[in-house]
Computed example of a mutant assay.
Amino acid sequence: MTKAKVLISGASVAGPALAFFLNRDGYEVSVVERAPEPRDSGYAVDFRGEAFDVLEELGVLAEMRGHDTKMRGTTLLDDKGVETGRLPAEAFAGELEVPKQELTRALHRITADDVTYVFDDSISALTQHGSGIAVEFERGAAREFDLVIGADGVYSKVRQLAFGPHTGTLRHLGLSGVGFSTPDHLGLERSGLLQQGPGAALYLFGSGAPNRLTVSFSFATVSPALDRRSRDEQENAVRTAFSGFGGEAPRLLEAMSEADDFYFSSACQIHLDHWSRGRIALVGDAGYCAAPTSGMGTSQALIGARSLARNLASAAGDHMAAFAAYEEELRPYVTRNQAAGRQAATMFGGHADLAGS
């Protein structure tokens, strides 16, 4: 019997997790990733609730527990750097927090022998027909698949091709920010600082790499337009937003310009009436991003991947029925996470009116 061929776009978390489950269930799985190699970047990710069951099913739960950052809590400061309170570790770290690269490395390792990975390439066209999907790539030769799954993030190429422009599905939460790392001159190992002022917040913590400080500047914006701007423009926007901050902010603004892992993004959610069209479906941030402020992105990606695979396995080849069941099962969970993401955006400088739109 010929195995059904599935192409997954995206090799971060949702994509490799889905690849593991689909391969286990007898599919021939390929993963295409625009990065030149397995992703080994990102800061800490946390797991909550049912995500632990997924990690156990993937066979990596014990390994992830071994990478626990063991965060001890976060000190709250005003915009001048004066302490105003303290938050427990669970406020940001969830039930278990690990450096993201440890999760992505594990997911790639457990799938590399059985799944075909194609790096440094991306889907350029999708044409559905009666018996499958013709897929064209930016670099590689065109191929035929039975199903295509978009697991390629907020700016998903699969979603853009199958559902239309990003502007029709992306909801900005009034918040943008930059992340980077720098030497830990404060000795913040396993603890954090959250400095809040009008329309802006600075969060820094020591975890992951020894003697390194992870820094996040977040500030109110009216659109995600800065995501597409140059680094100089992004840095200037950050400096303007934090020009009145005292404490460690001035020193960290200088460190920002020297960072070689500078990353800028806006807090956005993805809202779609349906997560599939024909033989194409979406999983994780590509289909229903709840925004980093929700604290549920990684858990949601893992749970979504397992739900999609489980429903495909039980539908006996009826992908339409499987996609419908997957959405019915997962949408209430996603709706709760997105509501939490909108609410939490205000803590980091987002506008309450935009966050609730």
Results as ranks from 00 to 15, higher is better:
Arg24Val: 03
Arg212Pro: 05
Ala62His: 09
Asp273His: 10
Ala291Ser: 13
Ile280Val: 15
Ala344Trp: 01
Phe47Leu: 06
Ser299Glu: 01
Phe242Tyr: 08
Ala316Gln: 14
Ala316Leu: 10
His319Ser: 15
His172Tyr: 07
Glu254Met: 07
Leu126Gly: 08
Glu327Gly: 00
Gln196Cys: 11
Phe245Ser: 08
Met256Gln: 03
Gln195Asn: 10
Ser207Trp: 09
Ser12Leu: 07
Thr84Pro: 07
Pro165His: 08
Asp120Met: 05
Ile303Phe: 06
Pro38Ser: 01
Ala324Lys: 12
Asp121Lys: 13
Asp68Met: 06
Ala51Ile: 02
Gly278Ser: 08
Ala316Trp: 02
Phe119His: 11
Pro210Gln: 14
Arg228Thr: 08
Val115Gly: 01
Leu76Tyr: 12
Arg171Trp: 04
Arg228Ala: 11
Lys157Gly: 14
Val13Trp: 00
Met296Asn: 05
Gly164Met: 12
Val215Thr: 10
Arg279Trp: 09
Ala325Val: 03
Gly287Val: 02
Leu147Phe: 15
Thr74Leu: 03
Arg24Met: 06
Thr111Phe: 00
Asn236Arg: 14
Ala134His: 03
Gly26His: 04
Tyr117Gly: 14
Arg231Asn: 02
Asn311Cys: 04
His185Pro: 00
Gly208Asp: 11
Ala35Gln: 12
Gly206Trp: 07
Met320Ser: 15
Val13Ser: 04
Gly287Leu: 01
Leu161Ile: 09
Gln338Pro: 10
Asp113Met: 04
Tyr155Phe: 14
Leu22Thr: 04
Ala91Thr: 15
Gly164Thr: 15
Leu302Ser: 13
Asp260Cys: 02
Tyr288Val: 04
Pro198His: 15
Leu213Gln: 11
Arg306Leu: 12
Ala255Cys: 00
Arg139Pro: 00
Pro88His: 10
